[in-house]
Design a protein around this nucleic acid. Sequence first.
RNA 1: GCGAAAGUGGCGGAAUUGGUAUACGCGCUAGACUUAGGAUCUAGUCCCGAGAAAUCGGGUUGGGGGUUCGAGUCCCCCCUUUCGCACCA
Length: 839
Amino acid sequence: MSSPYDPKAIEAKWQDRWEKQRVAEVDLRNAAGKYYMLMMFPYPSGDRLHVGHGRNYILGDALFRYLRMHGHKALNPMGWDAFGLPAENAAIERGVHPRDWTWGNIRVMKEQFRRWGILYDWSKEIASCTPEYYRWNQWLFLRMFERGLAYKKKAPVNWCPSCQTVLANEQVVEGACERCGTPVVQRDLEQWFWRITAYAERLLSGLDDLPGWPERVKVMQRNWIGRSAGAEIDFAIPALGQTVTVFTTRPDTVHGATFMVLAPEHPLAAGLIAQHPRRAEIESWIERVRNTPRIQREGEGSPKEGWDTGRRAINPATGEEIAVWLANYVLPDYGSGAIMAVPAHDARDLELARQEGLPVRLVYHPEGGPEGPDGPEAPEDIAEADPALLREPILHEGVIRNAPPFDGLRDEPETVRRFIAWIEENGWGRGTVTYRLRDWLISRQRYWGTPIPVLYCERCGTVPVPDDQLPVELPYEVELTGRQGNPLSRVRSFVEAPCPRCGGAARRETDTMDTFVDSSWYYLRYLSPRDATRMFDSALANRWAPVDQYIGGIEHAILHLLYARFVCRVLHDFGMVGFEEPFTNLFNQGMITRYSEKSGRVEKMSKSRGNTVSPDELIDQMGADTERVYTLFIGPPEREAEWSDEAVTGAYRFLGRVWRMAEKLSDAPPTAPADGELERERHAAIQRVTQSMERFHFHTAVAALMELGNALSRALEEKTASRLRCDETFDTLLQLLHPMAPHISEELWERRGHVETLLDSSWPEHDEAKLRRERISVVVQIDGKLRDRVEVDAGASENEVRATALASPKVREHLAGQEVAKAVVVPGRLINLVTRRSA
RNA sequence: GCGAAAGUGGCGGAAUUGGUAUACGCGCUAGACUUAGGAUCUAGUCCCGAGAAAUCGGGUUGGGGGUUCGAGUCCCCCCUUUCGCACCA
């Protein structure tokens, strides 16, 4: 009768059954009740299949099964974020077409999901590389183009020399390409942008309405948007008859602006140096600065380099002439690309001023602080003696002097407001807000992406592709060599097309879209994946979305998650959805790490680091259930967790014990005295597992299951519980175990003669009354120190507890005749006897 | 530098609200069974001291101080680690 635990056979059986019966499918139109949506949109890159990556899928599946057992109509769709550079690079390296390579990887990943026992609603499957999907990227582009939200401009952009394409600001991490790590250089190119900056304020304020998002993600987005309020002030350059507008957050320091600085890339720079005797030198310096990698130029320690243009501007507040400089520390794409330099109150300006001998003038003067006997020491003292000797800028202290009518004001927001009003009254400038956020650069000079639906006609100029000519299909025949330039531009049959307006010869745009466009709205397409008439079904979207629970890694904190929030607002403004935030609750699972022989360190699991664990081997040896249980047990899911090959056996042993327990149930006696104890443990386990699942604390849920298993084992061993009680307890164990270990739990459940599957059964509920004991153990403390435990009736009064405690011989001994001044009783838990000493 | 999170046995970690610190698992120790296997089962395992033993006493949540009858949990100072931001005017 006894059969050993053989995960292979039972897992294959159930995976087959789930697949054939398509158990995860949801009829969106007819489903009712509370809805959840758990989604993923993985990139089928072929080298992502290791246990580290399984974590969020396993987590999502456990949650999905848990919700199903609660009777929720949970939707768990899966699709493929299939465009992207790795496919193109693989094509260049191995000579496989990106499309074939991608579909091959999708097949492999689907098989992996099946072997993990993960349920997806494959009737909703989408892939972004199909014309049926990407035509709606194009459709969306055209709608944005019509409203000026998509536009083309020539601008300095980030260029990755290795990927041979431009990158969005969000894809540049510490000055390097997010994907390949190559330092990014600046290039002046004509590119397509999406006007995300028009939504900066709404994207920022919307974060306050996302209580279900981790704080750190919201902070990262706030930093990225980088709102700063201040003023624009116009500085005239009389000799040229021009005006340079600067942006400052500190208009209250305008009296201290002793020179001004423009970015070397500033449009007026060339005019300013046109007559300069060393013009050629300055021009080659500008060229050098322009080609400096961002990380070098923007690093805080980078040396300041600048040139005096020889031109003079007028400080409107003082009427004085000030020098106009060009310097590398002023960036062309923030504010207006020009600043008023206030060295007394800004570290960077002070550094340049000291280096170049430029004047320093205080606006805020430190109070008090007369010179010491040894001359000026503190920065404030130096400032009073001679501002030019200042070593540190003065921040947030002192009062304004020599700037009537503001003398005596302190550094506080009200002062800034008064200055802005004054500047506006005099017509020198205006209060304004700027953002660090730049428009989203969506063009890519690559083949494997969504063609941008635009043509260039000699006569008509830039012409959008009419809707009825969508999709603009990506040609299959293409030569991918890795040579310079976009492969698409060499496909003549694609490039040459008639102008939709005049019918004359035109050229197609050969740039393709950033893949983050695909993932910015995919969650809506899941709801009507085959609809050929529209982007998505708004009625269904408003019923199911926003997404109740989103699970993903932290790496998307400002990329995908910012773009998706932006596009959601655009769709909202188009009247296509009734909400502005796409994801109500966000959960970031931590990575799985493992010791790497190569580096001798514990690192993120990845093929390149050679520290992966193959799920296939693990499943062959111990089964998918073991991998699932261990992955959930390894630690809090929001934190990183280190994979331990040895610790996996703990999960395997646990499942083996459960398996063998099923066969021992028949040995239980018909009646037993301690039935109530096991019943109490059963209800306690239900409560603990449920509470843990609600908080995503799968690791403590598994621990609670192990405890219930241990309790039942003990009862069976010692024959302290009846057959009926043991059966019932075991059934509960299987129910609670199902989200984590679906195969073994279904198999044992079926063998026990249940007709309905666990997935269709309901989640057990605990009974508060069953958790109570008749006699409870109460801890006795004396002055906060644990001295004894006494048994009392569950309903004992404070006085009874006190009397019992005082009667204990141990307590008497410790009291040693001291008076009890006070007794604190925590019902059902403890009594603390306080002696006079500490009262 | 600024901001955030964290610091608990040999290890991963547990402890919604202040109320028995170290659950659960790994590892380790001893034993049982044994066609000797990386299987299974049983017992033990925070530290120090006493005891043949059951047990008893003391200490312990990075360090120091505070609030409280009572602090891993709350407050203040310090140390360490991780993450995010960082010439953004």
